[in-house]
């Protein structure tokens, strides 16, 4: 069995140290090896995308119009979970869109840039998941660690 290396596997210690340095104001951790399926289709007219369950989707339409593609892009990105009481302040340093819960609710996602890196930002119950391309992951991790210094406990 081949050994799997996640894009931020080598940065785990530095990311974990952020929580200690900021007194929990910012927490960071990689969520590696998530499965990601990209589905492209046109859910309009007689084409519908049905959520059959929490992990299953079905694209339904007449044969002429139900054109689409499903691609496994799991290896394209890794996921960085960021949380803590100051997480909105942290993300605001590198992201122009409004992530306030009044506008960007639990379950919402947006494709945008964070610290100039193309990302998908996804608000979960207690934290944000940042889906970032593997080649940008180290840059983003460095940026988060650096940006979190502002919230170092005692400052």
């Amino acid at each position: 069995m081949a050994e799997r290396n996640s894009p931020l596997g080598g940065a785990a210690d530095r990311l974990a140290a952020v929580a200690a340095a900021t007194g929990g104001a910012v927490t960071v951790a990689e969520v590696p090896f998530l499965t990601q399926l990209n589905v492209r289709t046109r859910p309009s007219g007689d084409v519908n995308v049905l959520q059959l369950g929490p992990d299953e989707w079905l694209v339904v339409g007449s044969s002429a119009s139900a054109v689409g593609a499903a691609v496994d892009v799991s290896a394209q990105r890794t996921t960085v979970a960021v949380g803590g009481s100051r997480v909105l302040d942290l993300l605001a340093m590198g992201c122009a869109i409004d992530l306030h819960p009044r506008v960007f609710r639990v379950g919402d996602c947006a494709q945008t840039t964070l610290a100039h890196a193309p990302v998908i930002i996804w608000r979960r119950e207690t934290e944000f998941w940042i889906l970032v391309r593997s080649s940008f992951a180290a840059h983003l991790a460095d940026w988060i660690v650096d940006a979190a210094q502002e919230f170092t406990a005692g400052d």
Partner: peptide, 10 residues
């Protein structure tokens, strides 16, 4: 599709 965004995204 996404609403108002910064020019740098375009």
């Amino acid at each position: 599709w996404c609403g108002p965004r910064d020019e740098s995204e375009f």
